[in-house]
């Protein structure tokens, strides 16, 4: 089904619960992905350094380096690699911390297999789309900020901020729909490629991160404005 998409994709599963790692490995292999397991943070970073990885499924509580530390290290080296956090930690602050550090998606345990696979598929699809989408656009100016779609950076006042893959995808989607109201549901379906019933808070977290980079006063946004009860609208 997703053979074309998945046959080249290599997924790193970072999970210290052996039983869960085995189950994930089996299912992802069945979907046609290549998989590799790391039982702790050290192993995960070694594999990331030495192997070509297309996506990381990451637990938080891990020996040596936890999921947050791994995200920070990975993001510094590769802002584009999709990271899915899969954890039993359900506190909002953990989720926020993960997303702020640059995780693309966050799924809590126990999870449904279908949902996990859908999210992984969506993340990998976004990665492929991203290349196509940014072929004809490399730099875009929003107010004082300059977005570089090639290296995922945002420059303002001589400072560079690293954007994540998901952030840049949202921004690209909003730019394409300039002047139109875009609902959270639409963003979830088209950017995350997931069911809109799943989570709408995630969209808000990413928008607030984007505002921090683009807006002069993020509390009074000029470019990405909220449309009460619906979603967001991008205007220059």
């Amino acid at each position: 089904m997703n053979q074309l998409l998945s046959e080249k994709s290599k997924i790193l599963i970072v999970e210290d619960e052996e039983t869960l790692a085995v189950g994930l490995e089996y299912n992802l292999s069945e979907e046609g992905y290549e998989t590799i397991i790391a039982k702790n943070g050290k192993e995960a970073l070694e594999i990331f350094e030495n192997d070509r990885i297309d996506l990381i499924v990451l637990d938080i509580m891990l020996p040596f380096y936890d999921g947050f530390e791994i995200t920070e290290i990975v993001r510094k080296k590769d802002p584009q690699i999709p990271i899915l956090m899969l954890t039993a930690k359900t506190k909002n602050e953990d989720k926020l911390k993960g997303l702020e550090l640059g995780v693309d998606d966050y799924l809590t345990k126990p999870f449904h297999l279908d949902e996990l696979l859908l999210r992984i598929r969506g993340m990998l699809k976004r990665k492929t789309w991203y290349k196509k989408l940014t072929n004809n656009i490399s730099i875009y100016k929003i107010g004082l900020s300059e977005i570089n779609f090639q290296n995922l950076t945002c420059s303002r006042d001589g400072k560079d901020f690293q954007l994540t893959h998901s952030e840049i995808m949202i921004l690209k989607y909003l730019i394409d729909k300039k002047g139109e109201t875009v609902s959270r549901k639409e963003l979830l379906e088209n950017v995350w490629n997931i069911s809109p019933e799943v989570e709408t808070r995630t969209v808000d977290i990413f928008i607030s991160r984007l505002r921090k980079h683009l807006e002069i006063d993020p509390t009074n946004p000029q470019y990405i404005k909220s449309v009460r009860g619906i979603g967001y609208i991008f205007n220059e």
């Binding site: 619960e17 869960l20 189950g23 345990k109 126990p110 999870f111």
Partner: peptide, 8 residues
């Protein structure tokens, strides 16, 4: 943790 593994 064990519950999610069993569910999987």
């Amino acid at each position: 943790s064990p519950l999610s593994s069993i569910q999987l």
